[in-house]
Amino acid sequence: MEVSLDKRYPVAASPAQAWTVLRDVRAVAGCMPGAAITEQLDDTHYKGNVKVKVGPATAAFAGDIEVLSLDEATQRLNLLGKGADRAGSTAAMDLVATVEPGETPGTSVLVGQAKVTVNGKFAQFGGRMMVQVSDMILQQFADNFSATAAAQPVPEAEVAAAQPLPEAETVAAQPVTEPKAA
């Protein structure tokens, strides 16, 4: 079962802040509900796992993540994740994510194209709900991503270039991350 996703999520942080998160695979994984990086093998290879529930199917995928490309100039990340669940499912995701400037200063857009392939029991049981569940998970991911990005220190160059942000606004972004940490 193959699902192609093409999504744009608004991020309440500047492109530079967002890119700081996106270029860090551990941080990206941290935004994905149920996911974690367990080991870094080299500059571009990681091991990780992710737990997902789709309808009656629950899977704990353990697998490899490979950063295929990371382009600072275009703020574009391409990674490939492949994993297997011991109960008889496999999953793979080829993800291309870029950061674009938002419509208003200090905001950005996370643009993602992903091809998700699942096989085995996960596809058999959860196939018909894949799109809906993917949407839901990605929305959670985007929310976490946005909060994480907003919590990043604003790069100096950007501070200089941009209008100073009102205190209140920066503070307002903070509480979003706090319940997650709790």
Binding site: M1, E2, N119, A123, Q124, G127
Partner: peptide, 13 residues
Amino acid sequence: FDAQGNLLGNTLM
């Protein structure tokens, strides 16, 4: 079957 050969319908659901 889907294109990857997953049998979508092997339970009494």
